[in-house]
Design a protein around this nucleic acid. Structure first.
Lengths: 248, 248
DNA sequence: CACCGCGGTTGATCTAGATCAAACCGGGGT
DNA sequence: ACCCCGGTTTGATCTAGATCAACCGCGGTG
């Protein structure tokens, strides 16, 4: 109720740094909120929770109440269909939002599981809607977030619809590289938190095909793989694989 | 400015029928707006335009100002990538919304072309945001619409990532059937407004594969195809193709 | 310390769908 | 009536990736 809350354990500078370095990057960082408005946000994001590796943050069918922002760690979201088919719909890292799909039906349509010990912020959706009615900048930013998710999915469609295995994997690696880079981590060295099978499922490939593509890239000097540890040796060449690279 | 507008050429009952029968189905029909609120909407949807078959409603890169609701007709949206690759991202019919992807960048990311002479409603996005700040039901409904688009795209991912050609086509036909049905048209007889190539692109298949699948379905008595005219003879069997049907 | 088991790599084969090629069909224009 | 021409069907072949199968390596556990 109190419009601002300077108390409550989180002061402005902490929040600011929380924003830019992790959790609410997507939610609050890019918009020109004034201090008072940031105070609102402080009220909004009320529960910060830990999720252990392997634990589910939510499951399909659970009533939808909140969105979740990854503060730290790594998640996988996936859909399970009646006939047992599974589709990984995304891997979320620090600063990214989960649960947007659930708004449409008031129930989660996918499962979210932590691929490593992670911290999340719970964002009660009703509060977010209330607040975004009062803060146009927040409203607009939220709409952009949803729209960005749609664009992301459309990129995936192209990938799944018309790329070769090598192109898919190169796209995947470059996407991770870019996202790690944007968060201040190395663009060229990182750990894959997911298995080959999960990568394959996400990219519409079998795990053997993923493994072979990794090996091929390594043989050609594009990357260095050691299990989950990836080092990109030649970003340029990896980019080249995608555009007209490896198709006949 | 005027909160309600009983004048302006469109009275309530007309609007109502416009809603349920076509344009704003998705936008206004399902929510419990009161009369005054519907009056607002009347202000909002200000331009109704015709788009001739083959004409583009918008093109990628154009500045984003409005969403568009299909009142009548049939559209295709597609993305063109740098290297010339093309991905059809959807086919929109009466009552469906185009342009949600553009919010994220303030510019359209895809092209929209009419597959037959069509009527659309232009919905200025700024006005929609203004209004949805005043009308919570509208706000929530708009969020649901965006979310539904995300869920739809995730369904496409599963299709593209793990279905056989037959399953894809069956899914496609059943989806059309369901959408036509929901609009009061026949669930079992309709015209395909798009070419085999467009279907193939959408489903991640080549046109020959689409054609062959059509022929196979026809041979097996599931459907009757004559060029663009489709008649579904056995909905049940078509459903069966998808779930465990045609995979080894 | 030996064992187990999961995740990963690698090889050999198989196949759905792509590609190449030819013929067909139907509607609009001269 | 004829001829085009874009869209479609159908056949023959090719191939990327799936499938099947064997093996490796390492981290946890009795």
């Amino acid at each position: 109720m109190a419009p601002r809350s300077v108390v409550k354990g989180v002061n402005l500078s902490q929040l600011k740094s929380a924003c830019s370095s992790c959790s609410l990057q997507e939610l609050c960082l890019p918009i020109g909120l004034n201090k008072e408005e940031i105070g609102y946000l402080d009220d909004l994001v009320y529960r910060k929770r830990q999720v252990k590796r392997g634990d589910h943050l939510y499951r399909a069918g659970m009533p939808f109440e909140s969105l979740y922002a990854v503060r730290n760690g790594f998640f996988k979201t996936y859909v399970l269909y009646e006939d047992g088919r599974e589709q990984v719909t995304g891997f979320q890292m620090m600063g990214e939002i989960m649960g947007l799909d659930a708004i449409s039906t008031d129930a989660h349509t996918c499962h979210a599981v932590a691929l490593e010990d992670s911290d999340i912020c719970e964002v009660p959706f009703e509060k977010l809607e209330d607040l975004s009615r009062k803060v146009p900048a927040l409203q607009h930013h939220f709409h952009k977030m949803m729209s960005r998710e749609i664009v992301r999915d459309q990129g995936l469609m192209l990938l799944l619809g018309s790329m070769t295995a090598d192109e898919r994997l190169a796209t995947f690696l470059l996407n991770l590289s870019q996202r790690f880079g944007a968060r201040g981590y190395s663009r060229t060295e990182f750990l894959l938190r997911m298995t080959r099978e999960e990568i394959g499922n996400y990219l519409g490939l079998k795990l053997e095909t993923v493994s072979r593509a990794f090996s091929r890239f390594q043989d050609e000097g594009l990357i260095e793989v050691q299990n989950k540890a990836i080092q990109i040796l030649d970003l340029e060449a990896l980019n080249h694989v995608i555009a007209s690279g490896r198709r006949p």
